[in-house]
């Protein structure tokens, strides 16, 4: 695609150390849709940067990029530059740590945080040209690019759970592009279903899914890029 070599419009200095990091931070924010709908905000966020990334994160503005994303900004917004000051004015606690991820992409990060009512974590990597890979959310391993509208559905590990979820999606006439199901906690009998869709779902789908008996919670990740004209 021609669009891979022209654009996107981003805040510099590096598409992988800055722009991709904004996208990882923003993806993490989307996990808290429940808290936001109740009027809560994020309280504390911890960033664990892989060793090669930690060695240069200040000069690349990686810290500002991650925090900007967590605050909901896009990679082209100038607020990225002052995100750390914005976070502190909002009373959001932020901490950066160095962590060695074994056999991993150099630009790998773990983001972990909480609001008043929920806590999540995400592991992902910025793989160049502002592209990202999300590799784990709340104990569920995955490999998604964030370019599809994506549902992260936590459900009880019971027979028929998947068919009810898929049934609700097909009732809304949405096509599934990719889907993974992983058992996350055998003891508690919990699983996570990751669904990448072809089209953006209406809000109704999420409330419909939440009403299903085996469904424990639903997070929706909007696509990080919208085909043409990424800004």
């Amino acid at each position: 695609m021609i669009l891979d070599v022209i654009g996107p419009i981003i805040i510099g200095p590096s598409s992988s150390h800055t722009a991709g990091m904004v996208r990882l931070g923003r993806t993490f924010r989307y996990l808290f849709n429940h808290s936001f709908s109740k009027g809560e905000s994020l309280k504390r966020v911890e960033f664990y940067l892989n060793k090669p990334l930690f060695s240069s994160y200040k000069g690349h503005g990686t810290d500002r990029a991650l925090v900007g994303g967590v605050l909901g900004y896009f990679e082209s917004q100038e607020e990225i530059r002052s995100s750390i000051e914005i976070a502190s004015s909002l009373g959001l606690d932020i901490v950066f740590y160095c962590k060695s991820f074994e056999n991993s992409h150099p630009n790998m990060v773990m983001i972990s945080g909480n609001s008043d009512s929920e806590a999540h974590y995400l592991i992902g990597a910025s793989t160049g040209g502002a592209s990202i890979e999300i590799l784990e959310i709340d104990g569920a391993p995955m490999n998604i690019s964030g370019t599809f509208p994506t549902l992260i559905i936590k459900n009880s590990d019971t027979p028929g759970a998947l068919s009810k979820i898929v049934g609700a999606i097909s009732m809304k006439k949405l096509n599934i592009s990719n889907m993974f199901l992983v058992r996350t906690n055998r003891l508690k009998g919990e699983a996570t279903c990751i669904v990448e869709l072809d089209d953006v779902p209406e809000g109704e789908l999420i409330s419909l899914l939440e009403k299903l008996e085996p469904v424990l919670s639903v997070s929706y990740l909007p696509p990080i890029t919208t085909a043409i004209g990424v800004t």
Binding site: I6, I10, I11, P13, I80
Partner: peptide
């Protein structure tokens, strides 16, 4: 770009 300005990556930021 180096001072976190808004630029068009073409083909990259650098």
């Amino acid at each position: 770009n180096a001072s976190m300005g808004k630029i068009v990556a073409c083909p990259t930021a650098g």
